[in-house]
Design a protein around this nucleic acid. Structure first.
Lengths: 234, 234
DNA sequence: GCAAAAGTGTTGCTTATACACCCATGT
DNA sequence: ACATGGGTGTATAAGCAACACTTTTGC
């Protein structure tokens, strides 16, 4: 420890805190993320994750809910929100010292691309989107990995579906997020045999063609035991 | 919900950022956490997790490493550090708006309680410690749960051991963190049969009584597949 | 020899996978 | 009839828990 630098380095950092959202859904059998085009400097015109600054008198989860509502119109418990991590590289934002807390939001496939208010340039893209502003590629990668893991251990997949949903709906979520094909018969047995994952509504959905499927809602389970194991990394 | 004018609530929050550490180890077959007695207001004299403010010019991981070094004398890659989450309740700190980013540190059983510098009142206690300052009980709970999960999917358990270690050492870590008894024979087979978890050194350790045990180091694997499944919650 | 901890073999049960097969509907 | 997706049964394989048994040391 040197004397002079110590005086400088011991100063508590003066920081601002932003919240960035990774909003995931499944569209056309593929995992998609909501991306906006930035309207301000820095990175003007560049693609980025939606987000904004933490306001006075609100905690991070409220800030994330507010941003989610502004971007998608979704509100309340209709979606699943979870903290992914906090990103703090000193040079991550050219405006100064800004920490970003990333949240993962999983929403059902929305009818219109976005019913948001502020970010009119929002759009859904595949998760292999091009370069994003700031460190948003890293954040996106971490959030997707988190979603994949949570599919194994929690009923998160149901958050991708609008209730009520069929077992086939649920399976297509797993296939899209994990990027693998699953056996429909074994998947059906595993999910319906699991305790508290899904509960039948007693009603049916009639697809354009094929046998009607039983409809389900999300059950009371918060964790899946045993987990639905993802096939080996290939 | 207060009726504050919108113009106030839209102001970006002015916050400070702290880093709090959950430093875990295994002592006498039990999971233990490093706790300090606070020397300043607020919560003067109360037990708390070690921590401090983020400094200028350092990111969160560096701040966590600095704090860990100040508290335990440990430095560099000898330990495992991982972000657990960011805690942001508006009233979590009476001094004002202070966010805390929690880090989990897993260290081998240290010879002396603590070889630290600053916090002379640091001590190891069981994880069922009494009430802590701030929201530190919640942070501790989250961090322990994270460690338990990571034992299933990563070679984290080796971070609790000083290298080289025996399979029995490793097993006692699982038993302490999970709080269950495991079959030594099946555990041995599972771990040694796993790809890249542990690599034999070729040397032996002679216990005071009993057959000598082969010594191992941590292998190259970063994730365990298939995971070492924890027995059902009971 | 005896206690203690390491390590191996074996058995029986549980679970997963692959796939044959039947069901119910729209066209 | 036939295409399409929903759902059940079953055989084979893989994995796991339980435990008998052998090995290697200190005393």
């Amino acid at each position: 420890m040197t004397m002079l630098p110590a005086v400088i380095r011991r100063r508590p950092a003066n920081v601002q805190v932003a919240v960035d959202l990774v909003i995931l859904t499944v569209r056309d059998g593929h995992l998609a993320v909501l991306i906006i085009d930035r309207g301000n400097e820095p990175y003007l015109g560049r693609s980025a994750l939606p987000g904004g600054f933490l306001h006075e008198g609100e905690d991070l989860l409220h800030a994330a809910e507010r941003e989610l509502h502004e971007e998608t119109g979704l509100q309340g418990l209709a979606s699943h929100l979870e903290q992914v991590g906090t990103y703090s590289a000193v040079d991550r934002d050219p405006r100064g010292r800004i920490l970003s807390v990333a949240y993962l939001a999983v929403v059902p496939n929305l009818p219109s691309p976005v019913a948001g208010t502020d970010a009119v340039d929002a759009r859904w893209t595949g998760i292999d989107t091009g370069p994003l502003a700031f460190d948003h590629n890293v954040i996106l990668c971490d959030a997707v990995e988190r979603a994949r893991t949570h599919l194994e251990n929690t009923p998160l997949a149901a958050s991708f579906c609008q209730e009520p949903f069929t077992i086939g709906d649920l399976r297509s979520v797993y296939e899209a997020v994990w990027g693998v094909a699953l056996d429909p018969r074994n998947f059906h047995r595993k999910v319906t045999g699991m305790d508290g994952f899904v509960v039948p509504t007693g009603t049916m959905r009639h697809p354009p063609t094929g046998r009607p499927a039983s409809l389900y809602r999300c059950g009371p389970a918060r964790t899946l035991y045993p987990p639905l194991q993802r096939p080996p990394r290939g």
